[in-house]
Design a protein around this nucleic acid. Structure first.
Lengths: 165, 165
DNA sequence: ATGGACCATTGAAAATGTCAATCATTGGTG
DNA sequence: CACCAATGATTGACATTTTCAATGGTCCAT
């Protein structure tokens, strides 16, 4: 859930809607509201990412889980939940989906037999590699109007917000 | 909907969880993924904003609608939907809620009698003023580790992502 | 005047988010 | 060692959000 949805409403609205209204809103109080800008930027980028990942049968979420499994961090589901800020029960469902497609495996953590550690299968790493291409292409597209230095700065600032310690 | 939820899982997790795992994840592929960082930053800031707005009986969404009504932009519901990226039917519910609390009024747009224009009541402007205080305090808190110039840069970059033209 | 597009609204179905309860396991303490 | 409170995963129930198609009123270009 976000302020803001990925909502389409792309249906009828593509046309020559009265633009002045939109621009007026853009200059309103919310235009300087960080929470709002973050929410809207998130909604748009997420929608773009999901669209690109769809052809690989993934969404941003499953892609994230697969990514973490694929680079050998061997996260437990508990760690995934915290990192992705999902309820553990949502992680169960997500992992179920990936496991059924044989992209990841649950291995019980030898250090703590309550926990499952996630590892990607060969097929999983494969799919991830391809999906990552798509994801990167999207990111490049989104960041087209931004110089590489600005890109790095943006990432750094977002990290501060995303991981306040 | 976001990659990432506002999810709590604050229940048991406050304690001395094995931190190494989390840090490993942070340095994984996703750590450089803009879409992910945006989603996580959004989840956290949104949760903080919602918590702060709760005492005024608002959430980030209703606050946003109230904000736009309150500063006299006279948006139609259609414009709200596009700006907030919500389905028009969600805007209906949102406005219903605010109107029942007498914070906003629907006025049929004299220029187009199909459309409703939203205006805040005195009570609505009042509540907004107070809620805005809370919202700004949250934002200050979130941006504590960031200099004012960086703050501006961040807002500028986010605007590029939030309003690609 | 007519027809096609558009706004707001409704209602239903799918997807998500939230939460409490359960089982197996852990780790610390008496 | 035996116990017990705390933790990881899982399930199922329930609430909220999202998505979408259908409808009635209005606009506008022909």
């Amino acid at each position: 859930m976000s302020i803001i949805g990925e909502t389409c409403y792309h249906r009828a609205m593509a046309s020559k809607t009265r633009l002045p209204g939109r621009d007026a809103l853009r200059d309103s109080v919310l235009g300087g509201d960080l929470v709002f800008l973050l929410a809207r930027a998130n909604a748009l980028t997420l929608a773009a990412a999901n669209a690109a990942l769809a052809e690989h049968g993934l969404k941003a979420r499953s892609y994230s889980v697969l990514a973490l499994a694929a680079d050998g961090a061997r996260p437990t589901q508990r760690e995934l939940a915290e990192f992705l800020r999902l309820d553990p029960s949502q992680v169960v469902a997500l992992v179920d989906g990936l496991e059924q497609r044989q992209l990841v495996e649950r291995r019980t953590d030898p250090a703590d037999r309550r926990a499952n550690v996630l590892v990607a299968t060969d097929a999983g790493r494969d799919l991830f590699a391809r999906a990552q291409q798509a994801a990167r292409a999207v990111e490049r597209g989104l960041l087209a109007p931004v110089t590489p230095e600005e890109h790095e700065r943006l990432a750094g600032l977002l990290r501060l917000l995303a991981f306040p310690d």
